[in-house]
């Protein structure tokens, strides 16, 4: 298929996945703010979602104060923020529009009607009152889009690139989500295992739709170790790094191009970490260090995919 087409499909999926993940993080933060507003400051509550997205500095320069209204504004509506939900969904639709031929008409209509409704919602205003329902809506539209993709798209390379975008983006987001706990400074009066700690780790689980799965798998109190195991090593947890790389590896086995060996090598190496890795070893080296290293390698993999399959001149 056309490299440009593959490129658009890949980025369309990435942007939809990114919007969904922003919505997940924001939703959980809003809920946490209701539970924890007595024990924590506004900064402690509203800084983590920006740390996850990696744009604390830009936010501080533009908005200054960490208030619910500012953070919602920046993460949902700010067109200067390329990761805001509005920007991500705009970009997804732009990419989709450029290659509507390459997808099923149901997929195109799903993206297009999502974008049209987004415009209406933005015009109607999105503030603290609306944010919960809005995040639910973004998540469900993202689920709908993936479902439509899964059930209507021909299993050709276009499908593989669309799925590839989803999992590269999701792996990045899961890693960032987990890493943010590292930044969360516990109030001096609280120790590890205290109430705040519990809420924060369970928030991470909620944001990854993993709370119920955690209860099912471990039937135990929430501990950092087990949360990490669930979101890094468990292959049966759909948003875990292991699950993402199962998908990525399978997809890349189907795609071949001159010079794709390096892609395959990088994927194989990362996959092996999750497939054969042990939580003890990861914690010994430091979870934060492990995640930072992963985010960098996943990013390099994205660049290599770009170079090998997507927009790359041959002549």
């Amino acid at each position: 298929m056309l490299s440009r087409t593959a490129d658009h499909l890949y980025w369309m999926s990435r942007y939809i996945e990114r919007a969904e993940n922003m919505a997940r993080v924001l939703d959980v933060t809003c809920r946490m703010s209701l539970v924890l507003n007595i024990t924590q400051s506004e900064v402690d509550l509203w800084r983590p979602p920006l740390q996850i997205a990696g744009n604390v500095n830009v936010f501080e320069a533009k908005y200054g104060a960490y208030t619910a209204a500012n953070v919602i504004r920046y993460m949902v509506l700010d067109e200067d923020n390329p990761s805001s939900i509005l920007s991500a969904l705009d970009s997804a639709r732009e990419n989709a529009r450029a290659v509507r031929v390459a997808m099923s008409s149901e997929m195109w209509e799903s993206v297009n009607s999502l974008w049209l409704e987004l415009g209406q919602r933005v015009r109607a205003g999105i503030g603290e009152m609306e944010i919960g329902e809005f995040c639910d809506w973004v998540k469900s539209r993202s689920h709908l889009f993936r479902g439509v993709t899964y059930s209507t798209m021909l299993r050709d390379d276009g499908y593989r690139f669309a799925r590839l975008g989803t999992f590269i983006e999701r792996a990045d987001n899961t890693a960032r989500l987990l890493d943010v706990k590292y930044h969360c400074l516990l109030p001096a009066t609280e120790g590890v295992g205290g109430a705040v700690d519990y809420y924060e780790w369970s928030a991470v689980l909620h944001a990854a739709s993993a709370f119920e799965a955690y209860q099912k798998v471990f039937r135990d109190t929430i501990t950092p170790w087990k949360v990490s195991e669930l979101l890094v090593l468990r292959h049966d947890m759909p948003r875990s790094l292991h699950a993402c790389f199962d998908e990525i590896m399978a997809i890349l086995e189907h795609l071949s191009a001159a010079g794709s060996e390096e892609c395959n090598r990088m994927v194989g190496e990362l996959h092996a970490r999750f497939h054969y890795g042990r939580m003890e070893d990861i914690f010994q080296g430091g979870l934060h260090e492990f995640l930072l290293d992963f985010i960098a390698r996943n990013n390099a993999l994205g660049n290599e995919i770009q170079r090998t399959f997507l927009r790359h001149p041959w002549s």
């Binding site: 056309l2 087409t5 002549s315």
Partner: peptide, 24 residues
């Protein structure tokens, strides 16, 4: 059929090719 833009096509040795994920 493929919907192409100018940037997807190129000329080499007096033939026209499109850039695909599997090569020209």
């Amino acid at each position: 059929i493929e919907l192409v833009e100018g940037q997807d096509l190129f000329v080499r040795d007096n033939y026209v090719y499109m850039r695909t994920t599997e090569g020209p």
